[in-house]
Computed example of a mutant assay.
Amino acid sequence: MKKNAVLVLTRTLYAIFIVGTIISLFIVYKDINSSITFKFLMGYLFFTFFMLLYVPFVTILNSRRLKWIEIRSRLFKFIALFALFGAVNYCFDYVFRPSNIDLLRACSISLGLAFSISFIDVTFLKKKEK
């Protein structure tokens, strides 16, 4: 049985990211200061930026395998969730922090949440066997 290399790579990168996040949170929480922890945190930062580019790329690559009706329903779900999360975030900012309303922050959080809810399973699609 042949394994999909992109799927294995994606799962491995997600596992490394989760472990790196746990270690980074521990380092920051315990306030550990050394050159090794600084290098680790800088590596984790670069790895995070890589993941921010890799995940949408793989999601778009894998979405080519979906039928148009499924892509359309996911896009509709994405747009609806983006609008809903944006409105909720803006309302909470207006109620709790009326002097610090930041639309760019609200939109970026809404974009990330809506994308991950709508398309996270597409990232892990397997190649169809012939």
Score class of each variant (00 low, 15 high):
Arg97Leu: 13
Arg97Cys: 06
Ser24Phe: 00
Lys67Phe: 11
Tyr29Pro: 00
Val88Cys: 08
Ser35Tyr: 09
Phe119Trp: 02
Asn4Thr: 10
Phe49Met: 14
Glu70Ala: 12
Arg72Ser: 15
Ile60His: 08
Met42Gln: 15
Arg74Gly: 06
Leu13Lys: 10
Phe82Leu: 12
Ala106Asn: 11
Phe96Arg: 09
Lys67Asp: 13
Arg74Trp: 02
Phe17Trp: 09
Ser63Lys: 11
Asp102Ile: 02
Asp102Gln: 02
Leu61Arg: 14
Asn4Ile: 07
Asp31Leu: 05
Asn33Ile: 10
Val6Phe: 13
Asp93Leu: 09
Tyr44Phe: 09
Cys91Gln: 07
Thr37Asp: 00
Ile71Gly: 10
Gly20Asp: 10
Phe82Trp: 09
Cys107Ala: 14
Ala5Pro: 12
Val95Ile: 15
Ser24Ala: 08
Val28Trp: 00
Phe92Leu: 13
Leu13Gly: 15
Ala83Gln: 03
Lys77Cys: 14
Leu111Met: 04
Ser73Met: 12
Ile71Phe: 13
Tyr54Ser: 05
Lys77Gly: 12
Phe96Tyr: 11
Arg105Met: 10
Phe76Arg: 09
Val58Met: 10
Ile101Val: 11
Val95Leu: 14
Glu129Lys: 05
Val88Arg: 01
Phe96Ala: 04
Lys130Tyr: 08
Lys130Gln: 08
Phe82Cys: 06
Val95Ser: 01
Pro56Asn: 11
Ser118Asn: 04
Gly20Arg: 04
Phe47Cys: 02
Gly86Met: 05
Ser118Arg: 02
Lys2Asn: 15
Leu53Ala: 10
Phe124Met: 00
Lys3Gly: 07
Asn4Met: 06
Cys107Lys: 03
Asn4Tyr: 13
Glu70Lys: 14
Tyr94Asn: 07
Tyr90Glu: 06
Lys130His: 09
Ile27Ser: 01
Gly20Thr: 05
Phe38Ser: 06
Arg11Ile: 14
Ile60Ser: 08
Phe40Cys: 04
Thr21Glu: 03
Tyr29Asn: 05
Val55Tyr: 04
Ala5Glu: 10
Thr10Trp: 04
Ile69Phe: 10
Phe46Cys: 07
Ser35Val: 05
Met1Thr: 13
Phe115Ser: 03
Val55Asn: 02
Ile69Trp: 09
Thr59Met: 12
Tyr14Gly: 10
Ala87Met: 14
Leu45Gln: 11
Lys3Tyr: 15
Phe17Asn: 08
Phe78Ser: 08
Asp93Cys: 03
Leu53Thr: 05
Tyr90Phe: 13
Leu75Glu: 10
Lys126Leu: 06
Val8Asn: 12
Phe46Leu: 13
Leu52Trp: 07
Lys2Gly: 14
Arg64Pro: 01
Ile117Met: 02
Ile27Asn: 01
Leu52Ala: 15
Lys128Ile: 03
Arg64His: 09
Asp102Glu: 06
Lys2Leu: 15
Leu7Asn: 10
Ala83Ser: 08
Gly20Lys: 03
Thr59Phe: 04
Tyr14Gln: 13
Val88Ala: 13
Arg105Gln: 08
Phe115Trp: 06
Asp102His: 04
Phe124Thr: 03
Leu53Phe: 06
Leu53Glu: 02
Ser24Arg: 00
Phe76Trp: 09
Leu45Lys: 10
Ala114Tyr: 02
Phe26Leu: 06
Ala15Phe: 12
Ala80Asn: 12
Thr21Arg: 00
Val122Arg: 01
Arg11Ser: 12
Met1Val: 15
Leu81Trp: 07
Leu13Trp: 07
Leu9Met: 13
Phe49Leu: 14
Phe92Ser: 06
Asn100Ile: 04
Thr37Cys: 01
Ile32Asp: 03
Lys128Met: 03
Leu104Gly: 03
Thr37Asn: 02
Leu9Val: 08
